[in-house]
Design a binder for these strands. Structure first.
Lengths: 351, 351
DNA sequence: CTGAAAGCGCTTACAG
DNA sequence: CTGAAAGCGCTTACAG
């Protein structure tokens, strides 16, 4: 069969070589049982030899499908320079793998919440559906979501499952996670547990974690001290500053529950820096279990959100919507991961 | 002008509403000066009101362009479960931003080096070009790249700039980086500097870092001790094991140069675990300056690859190839970032 | 400055 | 089991 080479072969070229119609080539390449096995094999072999691949634009134009999912990552950093939250970044990896397994490509896009992203991806037929990722400001968020829904865009959100919120959500049971974190600290004998994180209504996930924390305190008859609650957005530097602030205010505390690992890592740095030992003097627990949580020193005790499962769930959901199967919002169970920063494992420095 | 709403408007719908031909609509939407300003504005307004977006499949089919870049990330982890190297993951963020600035979408795909990815993305018209990212095994890599070139696929690699390597490469001057790291350790009075990393020909980047390290030793008349060189692939656990191995062999050393931050973090953990102080007893320097390098304790001294610049360079290069401008391979200068783990800054724990 | 027309490369009823 | 034909929604010479 020598050298069947050409620049940009089309199904028509293959038809000519195979001595069949272009329609038959199209069927054969999609493995249609309508085409006789023999013919099918021959055609596929020719396609392979020619390094032929179906033109996705043509196929997409015909079928109105792109087999692509757009992944929108909200950039909390205000754009420009800063790093994206590594937690979401690593989720992206799992999403991409899960999508590939189901035959979907993934288009990524970093977005400002303020951007006018809502409909374009699907309306332009670049994607069949959207996955939205990021700790959003749910107040502004909400109208955008409503606009998406109004435009019949298919989308799934990673975030808090909020009653009568538009769209489908896959999220973590943040309240339970916060509860587990605080209960664990209490079980270690800690009573003055500082809370670091933003709890305004624009951050319902963090608010839920706070609610869980409060529940645990109340269940243990520990009176919460408002002086131990410090607002902090999700940046390492702000975790650092939050602890500095507590120290400057002369607050005494024997534990810190930070609403994300990023904040927790900043908090630990500030504590060590002030000559306060972690976990001997102050226990620290984070939230997320991002990749490096296990590798900082002391290794961070944290509440794990299983991002692998989350990614699978998000992809399942969006593919479900695309293929018009019924989809439900889901709440996933978080899990406390005990490492060194809380002091529960005395003298054990690695698993 | 009330409610102009319809399910999936096309340029033809707009033409009808505007009372012009479909061709004029197409021109107007692409801002062609051929269309009278007035008409153009009117058409664009209608499009906006209808929430119309050009069907990318149709446009792509016509123009043979996708305005999309495929980002192929090589998965060193062997697939399945593991985390992707955070260094590359965060590069992805910058690439996506740079591409957006130039009007390109980014399609991501995690790949095994063994996969048959070489041509499909461009041949199927899903992408106009590829960016390849990851510490590849350059022996197997090479044939794949040759295949890409043979298929006239446009691609740019992040990696070592190797003479007569196929394709265009944007990379870091790894040799110089290794030199800076070792020279810095030597300047601190360290003489027995362990080297942790894989230096086989399949990892030319790491080999180059090793070469720089050797140069620095020789320039300082320090005789390199082969017992202080330990092979380690790019995983935290392997950095940990490498140090364990040195200790078990009874080697004495006062510094560690790890060929990546990930390995360095594992090394630090092993040292602390063995009761060896960092940096008092052993100085540690890594390579990459990944996001968390600054936030582990002690903060990691490392050789920074400016990933922002790298990302811009990669996108510039691939867009250049796509738009048929001449493109050259580039070597970027790395920069030593001094933090705590080397001991140069006594008593200073944060910037 | 505008329109009529061709054609990009597929998929899929429809007919046999 | 196979083919002829229509048509997806654009862009862009070509003609005026």
């Amino acid at each position: 069969m020598g050298s069947l080479k050409m620049a940009n072969p089309t199904s028509r070229d293959i038809a000519e070589i195979a001595g069949v119609s272009q329609a038959t080539v199209s069927r054969a390449l999609r493995n249609s049982p309508l085409v006789r096995k023999e013919t099918r094999d021959r055609i596929q072999e020719i396609a392979k030899e020619l390094n032929y691949f179906v033109n996705r634009n043509a196929a997409g134009l015909r079928t109105h499908q792109s087999n692509t999912i757009a992944l929108l990552l909200f950039d909390e950093t205000g754009g420009a320079d800063a790093q994206i939250n590594p937690f979401f970044l690593s989720m992206l990896g799992y999403i991409s793998r899960a999508a590939a397994r189901r035959g979907y490509d993934v288009l990524i896009s970093l977005q400002q919440l303020s951007d006018d992203w809502h409909v374009e991806y699907q309306a332009s037929h670049r994607a069949d559906g959207l996955i939205l990722l990021g700790y959003g400001n749910y107040v502004t968020y909400r109208e955008k979501l409503a606009a998406l829904s109004a435009a019949n865009t298919r989308y799934v959100i990673w975030g808090p499952v909020i009653k009568d919120h538009p769209g489908h959500t896959i999220g973590c049971d943040n309240e339970n996670g916060g509860f587990q974190a605080a209960r664990h600290l209490l079980s270690l004998g800690r009573k003055r547990i500082a809370f670091l994180g933003q709890t305004s209504p624009r951050s319902p996930e963090f608010s839920a974690r706070y609610a869980g924390y409060m529940q645990a305190l109340l269940a243990a008859n520990v009176h919460p001290d408002p002086g131990l609650k410090v607002d902090a957005d999700n940046l390492e530097e702000l975790g650092y500053q939050a602890v500095e602030q507590l120290l400057a205010a002369g607050e005494s505390f024997d534990a810190v529950f930070a609403v994300t690992d990023v904040i927790a890592i900043g908090a630990v740095r500030a504590l060590l820096n002030a000559g306060i030992r972690v976990p001997e003097d102050v226990s620290v627990v984070g939230f997320d279990d991002m990749p490096l949580a296990a590798h900082v020193t002391p290794a961070l005790t944290t509440v794990r959100q299983d991002i692998r499962l989350a990614a699978d769930g998000l992809v399942d959901a969006i593919v479900g919507l695309i293929e018009e199967r019924p989809v439900e919002s889901t709440l996933m169970a978080p899990k406390l991961v005990v490492r060194e920063s809380c002091g529960a494992k005395k003298g054990v420095r690695h698993k």
